[in-house]
């Protein structure tokens, strides 16, 4: 085995299932290892690990694989994950550790960093190499800005990535479970009384009106539909609105929905999380209506109105029709 310190991905297994985010970490880790020219180790931890073995097919023999069975306790505690991750890191001695940006990774990761004495950065949106050092980007100031962080080449680093922003890779010959699949599965049937009216198709529309959790109820959904009709626009949705059954999953804009760049993107009652803005930030013009003046979506809007959508949208429909 080479002495060179490589990249270690700490994959995550829930009762025998590789988590979808693990496929994203695999992409991030494999690509970073290639860029650094160092070995890549893929580890996965969790319960019922034997089941998960079936989901990892033939891998490039250069990739080292490590697994750890966890005796998970109920209720959840960080201890089991921390101890297993600690053991794997000590055994493989990596230069960069990528651990899950999920609730579990966010919980044990920082303790691991302190235990090992490594620096750590969270919520990473991209990874790269400059002058031999690892450089990551992440969002700051509540999603209103971003910055890069560089780690000196001789120092080990722990990172966790923002879920949903890296392409999922198949691991071995097994297809990745994508977040699109997960969202589609989780999304409840949208209520039959409010079928989404036929209009331009979301993926090739010039104008898109998207509704988020701020729509709250049937009344809000109806307002979004009427506004879209008045503008001859397609209807889009945030992930949260999909999960609440307000709009169907095929209208979801974002990292686990569609990526679009219409001339006009009008976001109503959407806060502007990185997973959502991933799908619309390259629109030509962005308009946002939100009652929270601090909503990050305003940061990227060309035209923003701070106010209650239940007041603004009816007035706007009247203006457009009048």
């Amino acid at each position: 085995m080479s002495e060179e310190r490589g990249v270690l991905v700490l994959g995550e297994v829930f009762v025998g299932m590789l988590s979808p985010h693990t496929h994203e970490m695999f992409t991030a880790g494999r690509d970073l290892a290639a860029e650094l020219g160092v070995p890549f180790t893929f580890a996965y931890l969790g319960s019922e690990i034997e089941e998960a073995r079936n989901q990892v097919g033939e891998l490039d023999p250069a990739i080292q694989i490590v697994t750890r069975e966890l005796e998970e306790e109920e209720p959840y505690v960080w201890q089991a994950w921390l101890d297993a991750a600690d053991a794997v890191v000590r055994e493989t001695n990596p230069r960069v550790v990528i651990l899950p940006g999920t609730t579990i990774g966010a919980d044990y990761g920082p303790r691991l960093a302190t235990r090992l004495g490594y620096p750590m950065t969270t919520y990473v949106t991209s990874l790269g190499v400059e002058d031999g050092g690892v450089v990551v980007t992440r969002n700051i100031l509540g999603g209103r800005a971003q910055t890069s962080i560089r780690c000196e080449p001789e120092t080990p680093l722990i990172v966790s990535c923002e879920p949903g922003l890296f392409d999922p890779s198949p691991i071995g010959n097994i297809d990745a479970v994508t977040l699109q699949d997960v969202f589609a599965e989780l999304a409840p049937e949208t209520s039959g009384d409010a079928p989404v009216k036929a209009g331009p198709k979301l993926t090739d529309a010039d104008r898109v009106v998207s509704g988020g959790r701020g729509m709250k109820n049937e009344e809000g959904i109806r307002l979004i539909e009427e506004l879209a009709e008045a503008l001859d626009a397609a209807i889009g949705s945030s992930g949260a609105a999909v999960l609440q059954g307000m709009l169907p999953h095929d209208l979801q804009v974002g990292s686990s929905g569609v990526v679009i760049r219409p001339k006009l993107y009008l976001a109503v009652g959407i806060s502007g999380t990185p997973q959502h803005t991933w799908g619309m930030k390259d629109s030509q013009y962005i308009v946002a209506i939100n009652k929270d003046p601090n909503a990050p979506i305003f940061q990227m809007a060309d035209f923003g109105i701070v106010g209650d959508l239940f007041d603004i949208v009816p007035a706007l429909i009247a203006e457009l029709k009048g």
């Binding site: 800005a145 971003q146 962080i149 001789e154 035209f303 923003g304 007041d311 603004i312």
Partner: peptide, 25 residues
């Protein structure tokens, strides 16, 4: 620490952003 942070940048900027606040609907 061994980490050095870059200057904050915007995800996207608009040259002439219009923001309406406390304006009647």
């Amino acid at each position: 620490t061994p980490l050095s942070w870059g200057a904050p940048t915007a995800q996207r900027t608009s040259a002439d952003q219009i923001m309406l606040k406390d304006v009647p609907a």
